[in-house]
Simulated scan of single mutants.
Amino acid sequence: MKIIKKLAITSAFMLVSFSGLAQSITASGATLDAAEAAIAQQAKQAGASYKITSARFTNGAYISAELIK
């Protein structure tokens, strides 16, 4: 019975910790500046700051970022 309780408690803590992960957002634009401005706008609407995780420029700019609350 103790093992079942410990397993249930451990599972609950894991679910809580995974729910606190940062939210990923993406944006695209004609230039990197335009795509970053879109990321900044999304972060502002969410009331958070952001950290760019990837950016590429192929026939347009594409940026991925994580929101940091």
Results as ranks from 00 to 15, higher is better:
44 K>D: 04
2 K>D: 09
12 A>I: 14
55 A>Q: 15
66 E>Y: 14
11 S>G: 15
52 I>V: 15
26 T>Q: 15
19 S>G: 13
65 A>H: 03
67 L>A: 08
60 G>A: 08
63 I>T: 06
25 I>G: 00
18 F>T: 11
6 K>W: 08
37 A>K: 14
3 I>W: 06
24 S>K: 11
58 T>S: 14
25 I>D: 05
10 T>C: 09
45 Q>C: 02
30 A>H: 09
43 A>H: 05
22 A>P: 01
2 K>Q: 12
55 A>Y: 08
60 G>M: 05
55 A>M: 13
44 K>R: 11
1 M>I: 12
69 K>N: 08
10 T>M: 10
63 I>K: 07
1 M>T: 14
1 M>Y: 15
35 A>S: 04
44 K>N: 09
37 A>T: 13
16 V>W: 08
56 R>F: 07
8 A>P: 00
59 N>V: 02
22 A>T: 10
52 I>W: 10
29 G>T: 05
3 I>V: 13
1 M>F: 13
43 A>G: 06
21 L>Q: 11
62 Y>V: 10
58 T>K: 13
7 L>Q: 13
3 I>S: 07
60 G>K: 09
21 L>D: 01
57 F>K: 13
32 L>M: 15
25 I>H: 02
41 Q>K: 15
27 A>H: 08
69 K>T: 05
35 A>R: 07
27 A>V: 09
42 Q>I: 05
23 Q>T: 11
13 F>C: 05
59 N>D: 14
14 M>N: 03
15 L>Q: 12
48 A>H: 09
6 K>D: 12
61 A>Q: 01
35 A>Y: 06
33 D>K: 08
45 Q>L: 13
68 I>G: 03
35 A>F: 00
16 V>N: 06
4 I>T: 07
39 I>N: 08
30 A>T: 03
28 S>K: 15
8 A>D: 05
14 M>L: 12
52 I>G: 00
56 R>H: 11
27 A>T: 08
67 L>T: 04
13 F>R: 10
51 K>G: 07
62 Y>W: 06
63 I>Q: 01
52 I>S: 01
62 Y>L: 10
66 E>F: 11
7 L>G: 11
32 L>Q: 15
47 G>Y: 04
26 T>W: 04
57 F>Y: 15
8 A>V: 13
24 S>M: 03
29 G>S: 05
9 I>M: 07
29 G>A: 03
10 T>W: 07
6 K>H: 10
19 S>A: 09
29 G>D: 08
